[in-house]
């Protein structure tokens, strides 16, 4: 028996197929673009292909992510909060605090020893610290998104960046460049400014080890380092961190296929900027 999880995020859409023993059979990732429904179909097809199975072999499919209600196929939807917690617990069972930073939002989630959501806090009102923020910084510096983290780690004299607003940071970066500051130091400052903001959000749910970092931004080693320095503890990151939402959705799908039902959670609003 196979199950699948599809995570329609603001920037990328991810899918995984799991077998009945919760083993990962295949995964896929593609840009979401303007048509969420189409992106989720294509991601699912690509994932089935990568898994070497046919759609009729899949018993249960769960959609998650901000575009989960636009996924036209599948059996049900589960919030990305629950899915990320589920996925993080599966990969790192001692996870108690989860930081999920995606393309357009940041979430801090308190997780039980069973991988259930105890409390959470999110910022989806402001792009500061999200993938969109880092994309913008990369564009201004004429770098690839994947390069800014490693480049920031080469800094010897980090600059203090005073803004957190994505738009203002762009102007601030341009000013620093004009004054001859080096890219490494600017980037390290940008990561620190955003790290401080992220920590403030995580403090609202409480920081308890182990801390696991998920979402697209967890691929950025500069952010991982900044958060580790600020938390004062090592942070769990996996190659699958970006797939954590759909992995969790797949695990819920497996439970559903085997007869269990997922828990509902309440949302706590965190003010934007």
């Amino acid at each position: 028996m196979y199950v699948a999880g599809v995570d329609a995020g603001s920037t990328t859409t991810k899918a995984v197929v799991l077998d009945e023993n919760s083993h990962l059979v295949g995964k896929s990732l593609r840009a979401t673009g303007a048509n969420v429904t189409r992106a989720s179909e294509l991601a699912y097809e690509e994932c089935l292909h990568a898994s070497g199975i046919r759609e009729r072999e899949v018993s249960y499919v769960i959609g998650t992510g901000y575009g989960r209600y636009k996924i036209a196929f599948g059996d049900t939807q589960v919030t990305e909060i629950s899915c990320h917690a589920k996925g993080a617990h599966f990969l790192f069972p001692k996870t108690r605090t989860l930081v999920d930073i995606g393309g357009q939002d940041t979430k801090a989630i308190k997780v039980s020893d069973k991988g259930e959501v105890l409390d959470f806090c999110m910022n989806d009102k402001c792009a500061a610290g999200t993938g969109r923020f880092l994309e913008n910084a990369a564009t201004v510096l004429d770098l690839e998104l994947d390069d800014i983290g490693p480049v920031s780690l080469r800094s010897e004299n980090p600059l203090r960046i005073t803004n957190v607003c994505t738009v203002f940071v762009e102007s601030e970066i341009i000013s620093h460049l004009a004054r001859g500051q080096v890219v490494e130091d600017i980037l390290r400052g940008v990561h620190s400014a955003i790290g401080a903001r992220t920590i403030a959000l995580v403090r609202r749910v409480g920081i308890e080890p182990e801390v696991t970092f998920t979402g697209g931004v967890s691929r950025n080693v500069g952010m991982v380092r900044t958060l580790e320095e600020r938390f004062g503890v090592p942070i769990n990151v996996s190659d699958l961190s970006q797939y954590m939402g759909c992995l969790g959705a797949g695990l819920f799908a497996l439970e559903r296929a085997q007869g269990a039902s997922p828990r509902r959670v309440k949302r706590v609003e965190a003010g934007g900027s």
Binding site: Q104, K125, C126, A127, R132, F133, N136, T166, V167, S273
Partner: peptide
């Protein structure tokens, strides 16, 4: 969207 960058999307 309140945020300029999110409003852009």
């Amino acid at each position: 969207s309140i945020c300029a960058v999110l409003a852009e999307s």
